[in-house]
Design a protein around this nucleic acid. Structure first.
Lengths: 195, 195
DNA sequence: GTCTATAATTCGATAGAC
DNA sequence: GTCTATCGAATTATAGAC
């Protein structure tokens, strides 16, 4: 259909406004009234289309991470670099969205958002490690530590905005993170980083 | 003075209740009424002693991190391990407090909390790196990356509660984090394979 | 020093006109 | 399909009695 109905345009306008505000303010501070104002429509429309604030959040958070793509056609010893580049591209490349910001900002006070992150990083990241390592008993711990470095980087760069972390360009950030991710992926966890 | 006045006891009871709730719920979701109920006093007392919700938050967050202690009498090549152990002990040892939880939970939606973390990690962590390295131009970037690993670990363990990260005992967590911190402190940041 | 009472907002959600 | 009007609940903050 080349023609989108008025209601469809309103629906997506609401959703985009909600994602923008959730990424900026988190769940509690994002009011239905503010979403409506941002979308340029009446607050009651939000309720009409999404039923409740919780329903709106559920719709806003329903995004595919596509993390599996990072591992395609990549030798295990370069997986850390591939993952680092994939993530940074996802965060701030031309196809970026504010998804990671939205999740981090909302996860603190909103249990559903925290559960969502848990699901992502206990399935997708763990799955990726298992694809690289096989079903080694270390796999969950490795996936967990990868999550600490990845989410910590996003937290410091986008939420807390620590100046040295913000100052790096995407290339440098990925290159700096890569050896550590590689270490957590395939390195000896009880030995120094890098062999 | 061995004798503490009634007002002093109330003041500290309020502060402790506030820290507890802020660590659990973050800034927005922590209401003055809930703090008062937790402390077993009237909501208006909170206003009387701390002026406003913002004033209460400022008082709750006014804590000394004592990060410098980690570096005393430690050779540079073991600094990563010392830092990792110091942090884990601080987070969950016998002298623990919920300070890191409080900050992380509030920083997302409350600008003052984010600024507070920025100050801590742009002064104390950077200072620590400079004590170890001298005033190298890499120092801020190293301090920034240390912050990503440290805060990311706290985020995944205490806030998001990723099961593999929660499952590790403190000893294992510190030992796993230590090589990465050492890498960021004194390693070759541009080398894909370290040393 | 502690509490009651309440003002002034703001929120999520509903009912219904057009 | 969109908006007006409003309800009921919750919030921060204030004024003042005891």
């Amino acid at each position: 259909m080349a023609f989108t109905q008025r209601s469809e345009r309103t629906r997506t306008a609401i959703l985009e406004a909600a994602r923008r505000l959730l990424a900026e303010r988190g769940y509690e501070a994002t009011t239905i009234r503010a979403v409506a104002a941002e979308a340029g429509i009446d607050p009651s429309m939000v309720m009409r289309y999404y039923g409740s604030k919780e329903g709106l959040f559920g719709a806003a958070v329903d995004v595919d991470l596509r993390l599996g793509q990072a591992a395609t056609d990549c030798p295990p010893e370069r997986l850390g670099e591939a993952l680092a580049r994939h993530l940074v591209a996802r965060w701030e490349g031309p196809l970026s969205d504010e998804f990671i910001r939205l999740l981090l900002r909302s996860a603190n006070t909103h249990a559903v958002a925290a559960a969502h992150i848990r699901t992502i990083f206990e399935s997708q990241v763990l799955q990726m490690v298992r694809d690289a390592l096989g079903d080694h008993p270390d796999a969950p711990r490795r996936a967990g530590m990868i999550s600490t470095q990845v989410l910590g980087t996003a937290l410091c760069r986008y939420i807390l905005q620590l100046s040295p972390v913000v100052a790096m360009d995407g290339e440098t950030l990925a290159a700096t993170m890569a050896p550590v991710l590689q270490h957590y992926l395939t390195g000896d966890l009880s030995a120094p980083v890098g062999r």
